[in-house]
Design a protein around this nucleic acid. Structure first.
Length: 734
DNA sequence: AAGGTTAATGTTTTT
DNA sequence: CATTAACCTT
């Protein structure tokens, strides 16, 4: 590699990016603001290491959080290299740990073919453990203990490492003991949950110097993406592995740390400098994504957080200065907010703006619904990102349980899941008998069922059904070696009656479920072995979102991290919703600051246009409630913001508008005053105000023209729904 | 053992 | 309001 003439993958970078790429040896922390080319730096650095022949592809460890990020990095490295690199250790923390743990499972009491449990299995198992320990599971709900255990695992704490004084709060101080019992159950089932993958692997690296040394020899360079999201155990794992060559590069942004509730510790950024002496730090501050006003708004907002590492986003784009201001819209109620967003989207669409470049980002999943409804009435195509993933669907999980029970006769969780699916007449009584036999004989459930059959412990229909099922498993197990996994699974799903069950099902979802099952069998063909596939399913598989169609994206702010759109709508900026009340109740100022970071993430998703909105009245569960504009609105620098209010808001609520828009009132004084005005939010009757010929909007029927009026009833000719008689208060004049 | 009824409970979520 | 899980009835 020539030193004088830099290759173009380097010359295309700005000086700070280039420093981040070329500072190859020694520990490096890259603080990368939103839109500053973080991924680009990471992938270029990866390629640079390979191209300068500092390491072979299999000597670089590259860690991401999501499979999507891993895939993207893989693709982009390949693009720079000109060919796909083989044998990379590139993947998510979990996938990489799973791969390692398969080799060393015996050190933590597992066999290398251990099963990876998903959260559903985890919870069921924990519940069983709690019931066995006679914990009152109404008083002490399993999910609460699950999250305690997960936080322990996030911190690298095995049951032995949990100190006694951490144990006081749950189930009268039995949390630690229950954790221990849960881990013991996992071991007997030869299973690991997601947290275990990291916990076990870290434990092994801590206790087995020879294994650690082996990985030191192997990994000469380590790259870490989204470093601010790492939890303690992930940090420990990285630190252990990096001790060898100390060539570790972590890229992150403390301002985008939004997963502390999941165990992520931003403190890992500070720890990095302490643990890795002479670590270099590079800041990426040139933003190539957004216009100047958007960056100014986001920067002004995030400046309200304390204890930041301090970064300033500079506009790096040529055209950044000419951008439009961030729009803040105040609306009367949530319906009007929905209409505002819908109308603006229609206008953008009309002007030729691609829908795929528009996103509506909300704080919580349930908020997407009202926007969906609006977009449906308007006939605007949209997609909701997030929600159920492929392997979380019931039919997929059932099918997988069948496979697991086939491959692993000891997988009680899988057996239990499908023993009565489809209905075989196996109920509580039969299941209890099997559990009892399993415990007294010390064998897995399936084996216990076999014993019961021989000893006449089961009768009638149940006996027949269980017999057929067990013979089925034996047959499919044999078949696996002879006919291969694809054929076996297809046969298994038919012979077990599982596909038939969905064919008989008359519900609307049934055909889709059958389709998913077919897709599952198709996907099997991409794998050498069934266990390889099972790993893939639990760690990697995601929604088949191949829809290349032009659609508006609807998602949570969390889901939007890492994405960007020309136009971003940020509705629901109201106290309690955003910042979220619970977040503040549970974590106080830390919670508030994380909410603010979330707002920062939201704003920085926008390339050219950001529309923030808030409504004065919102339907919460059953009834309408007045809401107060978010404090974040007051934190946006006024010179980069343009305020708009709807006519309804201005007419009905001048004071509220004035109060929220100036933002001059101290927080404490502001709230009661505003609520006073909203005590009587009933709108004036407007029948006489809507003349014949007026254009109106109805929530259900969409747009139309008034053809007649009678007291409070209007006859309206709707554009899409035809002639209807509606009450005036259900329409909005537009 | 299955289906219907009531009561509780409403963030964010990758792996 | 609307979803879901626990509960009760047949």
């Amino acid at each position: 590699m020539s030193i004088t003439a830099a290759p173009d993958y380097l010359t295309r970078l700005n000086p700070e990016q280039r420093a981040a790429v070329e500072t190859v040896d020694g520990p490096l922390l890259v603080l990368a603001g939103a839109g500053t080319g973080k991924t680009r730096v990471l992938t270029t650095r990866f390629a640079h290491i390979l191209l300068t022949q500092r390491a072979f592809p299999n000597q670089v460890l590259a860690v991401t959080f999501t499979n999507k990020a891993a895939r993207e990095m893989r693709d982009r490295v390949a693009a720079i290299l000109g060919s796909p690199a083989e044998g990379l250790w590139l993947g998510t923390f979990h996938a990489l740990c799973a791969r390692m743990l398969r080799r060393h499972a015996e050190h933590v009491g597992l066999a290398s073919n251990f099963t990876i449990l998903d959260s559903d299995d985890q919870l069921r198992l924990l519940k069983q453990v709690m019931e066995a320990a006679r914990v009152d599971i109404k008083r002490w709900v399993p999910p609460a203990l699950m999250s305690v255990i997960q936080r322990w695992k996030d911190r690298g704490l095995t049951p032995e490492r949990v100190s006694a004084n951490e144990d006081t709060d749950f189930a009268n101080g039995r949390a630690r003991a229950l954790y221990e019992a849960y881990q013991a159950r996992l071991r007997t089932l030869n299973a690991a949950d997601f947290g275990d993958l990291l916990l076990h692997m870290t434990e092994i690296l801590r206790s087995q110097p020879d294994i650690l040394a082996d990985y030191h020899r192997r990994f000469r360079y380590i790259l870490v993406d989204e470093y601010q999201d790492t939890n303690l155990v992930q940090y420990l794992w990285l630190r252990l592995l990096a001790q060898g060559h100390r060539n570790i590069c972590c890229v992150g942004d403390d301002d985008q740390s939004i997963y502390s509730w999941r165990g992520a510790e931003v403190e890992n950024i500070l720890r990095f400098e302490k643990d890795f002496e002479n670590a270099r730090i590079v800041r990426l501050e040139s933003n190539y994504r957004s216009t100047a006003p958007i960056l100014a708004a986001a920067s002004g907002l995030i400046a309200h957080n304390e204890g930041r590492l301090g970064k300033t986003l500079r506009p790096g784009r040529q055209d950044a200065q000419t951008g439009e201001k961030v729009t803040v819209v105040g609306l009367w109620d949530s319906d009007e907010e929905g209409r505002m967003v819908g109308d603006r989207i229609e206008r953008l669409r009309h002007d030729g703006h691609p829908l795929a470049e528009i996103a509506i980002l909300v704080r919580a999943g349930y908020q997407t619904r009202s926007f969906e409804e609006r977009l449906i009435t308007l006939g605007v195509p949209y997609r909701v990102v997030g929600g159920l993933r492929f392997y979380e669907r019931a039919e997929i999980r059932d099918a997988i349980a069948y496979m697991r029970a086939t491959v692993q006769p000891a997988d009680d969780l899988a057996f239990e899941r499908i023993v009565n699916v489809p209905r075989r007449g196996v109920g509580d009584a039969a299941l209890r008998a099997m559990h009892e036999a399993s415990r007294s004989l010390g064998v897995p459930l399936a084996a216990a069922a076999g014993h019961l059959l021989e000893n006449g412990g089961l009768k009638g229909r149940v006996k027949e059904a269980i017999g057929t099922l067990l013979r089925g498993f034996a047959r499919w197990r044999q078949m696996l070696d002879v006919d291969g996994h694809v054929v076996t699974v297809a046969t298994l799903l038919d012979e077990s009656g599982y596909t038939e069950m969905w064919k008989q099902d008359k519900s609307a979802e049934a055909p889709g479920r059958l389709e998913n099952l077919k897709e599952l069998v198709r996907a099997l063909a991409d794998f050498e072995t069934l266990s390889g596939f099972l790993d893939h399913v639990s760690l990697v598989m995601e929604n088949e979102e191949r829809a290349e169609t032009d659609r508006v994206s609807l998602m949570t702010l969390h889901g939007a991290k890492g994405l960007e759109f020309d136009t971003v709508f940020l509705p629901g900026w109201e106290e309690g919703i955003f910042p979220n009340q619970r977040s503040m109740d549970e974590s106080g100022n830390k919670g508030l600051e994380e909410e603010r970071r979330l707002a920062y993430v939201g704003l920085t998703r926008a390339r050219r246009r950001a529309i923030v909105s808030h409504a004065s009245n919102r339907r919460i569960y059953a009834n309408w409630q007045a809401s107060v504009p978010s404090r974040f609105l007051d934190e946006l620098p006024t010179e980069h913001i343009e305020h708009t209010g709807s006519a309804a808001l201005a007419r009905d609520n001048r004071i509220a508008a004035a109060t929220s828009f100036t933002g001059q009132f101290p927080l404490v004084a502001r709230r009661p005053r505003v609520i006073d005005v909203w005590e009587q939010p009933s709108r004036p009757a407007r029948a006489d105000q809507i003349p014949i010929g007026a254009r109106v909007f109805h929530t259900k029927f969409g747009y139309g023209t008034v053809t007649a009026a009678d007291d409070d009833k209007l006859d309206v000719r709707f554009e899409t729904s035809g002639d209807k008689r509606v009450l005036d208060r259900f329409v909005e004049r537009v």
